[in-house]
Design a protein around this nucleic acid. Sequence first.
DNA 1: ATGTACTATATGCATGTGCATGCAAAATAT
DNA 2: ATATTTTGCATGCACATGCATATAGTACAT
Lengths: 142, 142
Amino acid sequence: MKNPTLPLFEHWLYLNQYHAQIEQTLEKNLTAMHDLSLKEFYVLYFLAQKSEKQLRLQDLQESVGLSQSAMSRLVSRFEAKGCGVLERRTCETDRRGVYTSITKKGEEKLNEAMKTVDQILAQRFKECNLESLFAQPDKITP
Amino acid sequence: MKNPTLPLFEHWLYLNQYHAQIEQTLEKNLTAMHDLSLKEFYVLYFLAQKSEKQLRLQDLQESVGLSQSAMSRLVSRFEAKGCGVLERRTCETDRRGVYTSITKKGEEKLNEAMKTVDQILAQRFKECNLESLFAQPDKITP
DNA sequence: ATGTACTATATGCATGTGCATGCAAAATAT
DNA sequence: ATATTTTGCATGCACATGCATATAGTACAT
């Protein structure tokens, strides 16, 4: 007797669309203005967060949310781009491991790119009625 | 003098992770329990929404948020799976166009799958402090 | 010390995606 | 009416991804 398409799902669709729009805007602007993919930006961000300015591939995958193989190749491509924001180095104490570290140049690039990102996020977060996204779905259509 | 990594971005990361987790759970469960990808499910949903139970490929792309070519192939593959939930038919009045329509069997499958989806969404929406996701970021770290 | 199990990353392969383009049908101009 | 432009979908191609597996190094058992 229930409505087969409950408003719960419509909420998800809305959230989905909202997320996709922001993601696409970030991707487009980072690429155009900083020659960075969004995921490359994430990598720089998570590296910069660490005081040692470096992370194992393993830790990067978890943070960014990619598979092990995808992250391995992402970092490879990123380093191969030759923009010098990133370095790979075999771990001395465990020579299976690979450390990826961000360079000074990388931190500067990150800071510049972060300005763009923050600007976009500020605008998007403002222009959208966020509360309605997460009003209790049950209470919207009785 | 500003902090180079403003909390605005952390909010985005949180939203991103939240979104990714739900999406992955939906994908996994739809595949396992109903032999449907999430995007196939979206297609069925948008078709069922229309009273005519059919849509142009063009309209489907927009609704689902895929490129024209991706949607063309998605529907092709979906039909080719042979589960009989979907039909493609050339538009009579404009023979360039293609109508995709959902079958009775498709609607039943959608309803079953929707139960799974709603169940997951209800759980995920509940177990997460959604308000904190969208508290005004400015006010969090003065 | 040697063999076995485990771990971290790299790589072959299949797949889904977007972009550019092709092709057929319709709309428009002349 | 014919030529040109536009539209809707299909398809070649390049590429990023996940899964499965290979490779190399480490840990553990005996």
